[in-house]
């Protein structure tokens, strides 16, 4: 309800609120996944496994647009804005620094919204394969989406042959972010 945490809110309350921010965001990734052509042709088991492995990375791409490098603030999907300083005080400093760095790199590619959406689809289906049963089906879907992304990007920017490879190089960045930060702790108040 408050864009910037006032002094009257305890750090615990801010932390609870921050933790809650992820809930609607995760639900939106699930809805987004269902809209990816071919995703729901995968077995439900494999859909769940990809979402469990890839949602954090999709969120990292999605959250990039919520970073304001000039103001050094982050706005979450429930509309609340936190300064980097206040979030750092909650112990999220290393994650946020890594995300500012990632968002600057991704932002420099100046993707259009549809390109960003297709990139997020590629990110999701490129997630870790542990636990996937029908690996072939997932790989075929990944190949189709990468082809579509390449076609979209190169048709719009035929003179920039480096853009698509640079974009694919963001995939290992996302895996690193995932490995370093998905074990961060959140706290939810039990009333």
């Amino acid at each position: 309800s408050c864009p910037v945490a006032p002094a009257s809110r305890s750090s615990q309350e801010v932390w609870e609120s921050f933790s809650q921010c992820f809930t609607p965001a995760v639900k939106e990734v699930v809805e987004f996944a269902k809209s990816i052509p071919g995703f729901q042709t995968l077995s439900q088991h494999d859909q769940v496994m990809l979402l469990k492995s890839g949602t954090f990375q999709v969120l990292m791409v999605r959250f990039c647009s919520l970073f304001d490098p000039k103001e050094r603030t982050v706005t979450f999907l429930n509309g609340q804005t936190y300064s980097l300083a206040s979030l750092r005080a909650l112990g999220m400093g290393s994650l946020l620094d890594a995300m500012f760095e990632f968002s600057e790199k991704l932002g420099s590619l100046c993707l259009e919204p549809d390109e960003m959406a297709l990139f997020m689809a590629v990110v999701l289906v490129s997630a870790d394969r542990s636990g996937i049963v029908e690996v072939g089906a997932v790989e075929q879907l990944q190949e189709n989406l990468i082809k579509a992304l390449r076609s979209l990007i190169t048709s719009r920017r035929p003179d920039d042959s480096t853009l698509f490879p640079k974009l694919l190089l963001r995939l290992p960045d996302l895996r690193t972010l995932n490995n370093q930060h998905s074990d961060k702790l959140l706290a939810f108040r039990i009333d």
Binding site: V26, K27, L185, L186, A187, R189
Partner: peptide
């Protein structure tokens, strides 16, 4: 006094996804 459920971001994501699919079955 308030009590908290503490979990990792990964576990929280897993929990939401499992709930969503169970709800839609």
């Amino acid at each position: 006094p308030k009590t908290h459920r503490v979990m990792t971001l990964a576990d929280h994501i897993s929990h939401i996804i499992t709930q969503d699919f169970a709800r839609n079955q």
